[in-house]
Design a protein around this nucleic acid. Structure first.
Lengths: 187, 187
DNA sequence: CACAAACTTGCGCGTCGTGCAAGTTTGCCC
DNA sequence: GGGCAAACTTGCACGACGCGCAAGTTTGTG
């Protein structure tokens, strides 16, 4: 998977993502056409569609990558209670560095209410995989529990992230840890 | 608000919703055009756009109504810990009858993977309002907690509903109650 | 009954997603 | 290196979509 083809594809995909994010900030997400994004990434409008189903998907590609990284972290956790593995993975993810430039971009984009639906769609995209991984970790099979756990965990992570974007005074790891605690214990 | 105008608007909105749901089942959600939905409801294509932003919004209008109903039930709960109010409201909502015809329709529609994003979008639409209501019920203000609670509660409800659609052998109230219990205690 | 506000409709325009059929680039094996 | 197949890009064309606009029509009210 280290072929030139693969690297080029990853590069143009990333270029489209970056261009989409930048243009959405400069002119507002609704005022950006797919053609403008494609131009900024030096590809044709048709090629854009070979990579993303729409401009919103391109904008939130970063979130998708981050959530896939989370999934990998969960899979890398030692065997044990699923909840503990999820919390550890979330803390590790938040501990990894943030690109500060990407960050302010994401903050501005998240403000726009027309995009929140696509934001949650990115989370929903990994919910199925996360449910499968949780099921794998249960000593007694319990599909309902696995589903609820995956959904609530991702929801808590999303809520904590959004809250932190609105109130960046506290470090993100702290906010996420606190949110995870709420989800684990009763309040 | 009981004027003729209002009743007519509600009627055509409902007619469009029903038509969208029915046609999406008959031909698959992707094979249904807005024009076909509008025709089935005896309005013009342009009028459809006066009511819904797209066919998916029309399809999930029933879910939106149900979630607004949930919001009302939460507001009607007596003062007390927010979590308890949410659980009671969810149980009450699930206790209310299901239209069995609507139900099989919803089941078929939920299967289609291209619609799950819009499904969760319906939930996200009420998350802000639910957060506000929870904040109102907190004796000490805690915005992060309110946000996480709203998000995880809705996520648990959605997960329980989807699980029940896949495994309808148990009564829905039982499944929802069990999911709520998972969300309240630690597991 | 008359008038204003609200709603519907048709039209037009820019945009979007995608199948298709070229052209171009990359991987690979001799 | 040379050549061939697979993969990728691009332009074209088409149906569908969302929405602004300016009529026409219906509903509420004094």
């Amino acid at each position: 998977m280290d072929t030139l083809r693969e690297r080029k594809k990853a590069a143009t995909r990333m270029a489209l993502h970056q261009a989409a994010l930048r243009l959405a900030l400069e002119h507002g997400p609704e005022r950006v056409t797919v053609e403008a994004i494609a131009d900024a990434a030096s590809v044709s409008r048709r090629t854009f569609s070979n990579y993303f189903a729409g401009k919103e998907e391109a904008i939130f590609y970063g979130d998708l990558l981050r959530l896939r990284r989370l999934l990998d972290l969960v899979r890398a956790q030692p065997a044990g209670p699923p909840r503990a593995a999820l919390v550890r993975a979330a803390v590790e993810l938040t501990g990894e560095g943030f690109d500060p430039e990407q960050l302010t971009r994401r903050r501005q984009v998240s403000r726009h209410p027309s995009l929140v639906a696509h934001q949650v769609a990115a989370y929903a995209a990994v919910e199925r995989d996360l449910t499968a991984e949780i099921s794998r970790r249960q000593e007694v099979e319990d599909p309902l529990r696995a589903r609820v756990l995956a959904a609530t965990f991702l929801a808590a992570l999303r809520a904590a992230t959004q809250h932190w974007l609105d109130h960046p005074e506290r470090p993100p790891a702290e906010v996420v840890a606190e949110a995870m605690e709420m989800n684990t214990n009763e309040g």
